[in-house]
Amino acid sequence: MHPARQQRVMIVASILVGSALAIGLLLYAFNEGLNVFFTPTEIAEGKVRPEQNIRIGGMVKVGSLRKEGLEGTRIEFVATDTNKDIPVVYTGVLPDLFREGQGVVAEGRLDADGVFQASTILAKHDENYMSAEVKAALEAAKARQAGNGLPPAAEGVSP
């Protein structure tokens, strides 16, 4: 290759490597600060001070959802990452996709009793899309398997 061209290739390569290195170090320094929510395990490890405004993320534990008050606007549920649980209390309107067994992100603060007082609830959607018929068939298959005493197929739920 022509020496001048070779030099220009080096310049292009050094721009790429240099910017990747700079941004890489920056991201490494931020590390967990870039996470949009804390998991119940991280809260159990004491990474959060009480009364600090944070977001938590997890799955709405199946069987934990309770609605109270006028038209069920005061709700209680347990957010879990399957390792640790955290009770959540919220008053207000829920997104349509909020339901048991689904991902949830809650904004609010942890009170002194370890209960998360949520001011906003967001539903987290996973990367799977299915039609109602497929979902029904899947549920039926799972019920059949459970009836046979077989373990139900592991369902991939993104945390």
Binding site: L34, K124, H125, N128, A153
Partner: peptide, 22 residues
């Protein structure tokens, strides 16, 4: 993948006995 986000990860096709994303 690197951080936890509200946005879901990329969809996988033809994976997991093809029940999702038919």
């Amino acid at each position: 993948v690197w951080w936890n986000t509200l946005h879901q990860g990329p969809s996988v096709l033809g994976d997991r006995d093809a029940s999702a994303n038919p």
